[in-house]
Design a protein around this nucleic acid. Structure first.
Lengths: 359, 359
DNA sequence: TGTGCCAATGTGACCGGTCACAATAAGGGA
DNA sequence: TCCCTTATTGTGACCGGTCACATTGGCACA
């Protein structure tokens, strides 16, 4: 039984591999040892050279189909997995893209992008690793970046669309291509057309007959907040209105509420365009407290179309951004840089106005 | 000028490194080439051996402080970064932890954990990489897992607390330690004490005098949903009440609304404990539509304490979970497995009831 | 003064794919 | 029939740290 066993090759799991232990009386002693199979093992099993095995799982064109089949069989039988480290070492490529997040990443936008980015990256054969900056200052970013650099990422997606972060990034000077997600239109980034989104929202309120419209701003340090504000002003000014712009919120419902409280105590405003849905929620909150009916006394429009927006009271009119699309373009752009392929012209992703009962 | 230049060493950036090009007339020709410095370069610059350099940035104890200083200086000057691939290759360690997310990751809980996990991992010297299963079935998970395996992760954090995912994971059989985040208490995972949370919420409603309480369930495929339901039933049954449990929602505000519509048409129910905040939002929505006052006619309690919860109308009483703490414990546990250190006893993280105006 | 031990450092081989180049076979045209 | 091109496969060296082991110099103790 034992003899039969030892003669038979294990059919699954790792094959045993001879390891030289030393030379005794002119005879090489070997001891079998559990060890993940490498190209050499597979090559031996398939009766080809290591290089041929390598070619097979690298899809090299000139491999005879028959040979390929034989190698594939051997790989499957031995459950061969190419060793990433070895590959990285010689090719000097990690096929890894890093994502740098900074603060506030529980915000809807930043968050929704990550999965989209991961899938897009995997589709084109890259891995995704992330580093979160504890603080959005120079120090925090440097720590996160250095973690990414230590991982030898080939490109970085910066999800931290704040001026502060951008400055810090510029100061750090990483010699790795990077793309800013949710960035400003004027920089090398990928983004939804925020300006257009803001215009859509504003036009919508104007078309509903509102003339006293206020804008609840996001933090001006954020590119998106600035652009949304800009789009709002462009539209209202085009109508010859002197629109009102609030002080800056911090994206949170709390800040939206605080701002709305100030905005609504004098009864001029009939409509509010909030720079995001959370702050719009705060606005709704205050409106309820003040006994204002929405949309009769006050129309509210948000931005982002977070999943809950449809269930606010009343359901929120807002601007939807296609984050999956964004993730894809982002990776496409980054990979183009990495592989020094020609960059496609940047076309911002078009936002969509979703009209609901709040306006 | 040129002579002076060539004599001086560049003080920043990569030093030039001699590359053997061939032998001509007995003389070795070399050509300078931009190339990231390796241990050998640093060793030469510091006048020590490669191994000593290696020891320095590996914090090996027996290095004379003076020697260490010299090496550190050389490393800094040359801007030396140890090559991760080479290191992985010999040590057979990637120092990388993978995160597997499945579907629905825009849910608050799963999302909030990732940054916490990343920071916790970085603190103990691990990198974090993520893979998102496009679909929560066997196929999707296998693809995501195989991506992680290909990256040679040393451990996996599964953020996908569904039975289906767990089954699929079991079927796939990865020979890598893993920890389930947001999992059930009875398995090897790290989680907030959901049972306790549900009890807190239920007890709270009971203490407010409610006797006709309904529970809006999450999808029973989710461990958390099951446990919250269990906690709710345990508490109500302890009071001798026959409590009502809804059909399953899917965590979304939409499903919460649909369920609430069914629950509230006959006027028995005076309080609803929703398995998460989003569904509670849906409940609030329906309550408003039906003209029910909250909390006078209907008390509502949620679970999660998403940032918006405080700004629902009315502000939502809910159960808060400490995700940062969760992330830390999760990594601690995983790393203990990886480094085969003794596992600390699992103590679930305690949830906190946050009472607001909805109850 | 010898011996033993440890601290501090150096040397050669090696991890497991892949590069550059060599080698061989197979076809195609003159 | 012979040379040349192309398709297919093999060989040796190498990527850049790290392992195991060797080596050196001190110092304590007998």
């Amino acid at each position: 039984m034992c003899a039969a066993r030892s003669a038979a090759e294990p059919t699954s799991g790792y094959s045993s591999r001879a390891v030289h232990c030393g030379v005794l009386y002119g005879e090489v002693m070997t001891v079998p040892q559990r060890h993940p199979p490498g190209v050499r093992e597979v090559a031996a099993a398939a009766g080809v050279s290591r290089q041929t095995v390598s070619r097979v799982f690298n899809n090299h064109p000139s491999i005879r189909p028959e040979t390929r089949a034989r190698v594939v069989t051997a790989m499957t039988e031995l459950n061969f997995r190419p060793n990433r480290a070895a590959r990285m070492l010689t090719t000097a490529r990690s096929r890894t893209i890093g994502v740098l997040t900074a603060s506030s990443s529980s915000l809807f936008g930043p968050v929704s992008s990550i999965d989209a980015v991961e899938n897009a990256a995997r589709d084109v054969g890259y891995f995704l690793t992330i580093a979160h900056a504890v603080s959005p200052d120079r120090e925090g970013l440097e720590a996160a970046l250095s973690s990414l650099v230590a991982q030898a990422v080939e490109g970085i997606v910066v999800i931290a669309p704040q001026q502060r972060v951008r400055n810090a990034m510029a100061a750090v000077s990483v010699d790795v291509p990077s793309v800013t997600l949710h960035g400003a239109a004027d920089e090398d980034g990928v983004c939804v057309d925020q300006l257009e989104g803001a215009r859509l929202a504003t036009k919508h309120l104007l078309s509903r007959g509102h003339r006293r419209i206020a804008h609840v701003c996001g933090p001006s340090d954020w590119f998106e907040a600035r652009v949304r504000r800009e789009g709002f002003l462009a539209e209202t000014e085009a109508m010859g209105l002197r629109a009102r712009v609030s002080e800056e919120g911090d994206w949170s419902a709390a800040s939206g509420a605080a701002i709305a409280a100030g905005l609504l105590d004098n009864r001029g405003v009939t409509a509010i365009f909030s720079a995001n849905d959370q702050m719009a929620l705060g606005v709704l909150h205050v409106a309820h407290e003040l006994g204002l009916r929405v949309p009769e006394d006050l129309a509210v429009v948000g931005f982002d179309d977070i999943p809950e927006a449809a269930f606010f009271w009343p359901p929120l009119t807002t601007v939807r951004q296609d984050f999956a699309e964004l993730g894809q373009r982002c990776i496409a752009r980054l990979v183009a840089q990495i592989e020094s392929a020609p960059l496609l012209p940047r076309a911002p992703v078009a936002p969509v106005l979703v009209v609901r009962a709040s306006s």
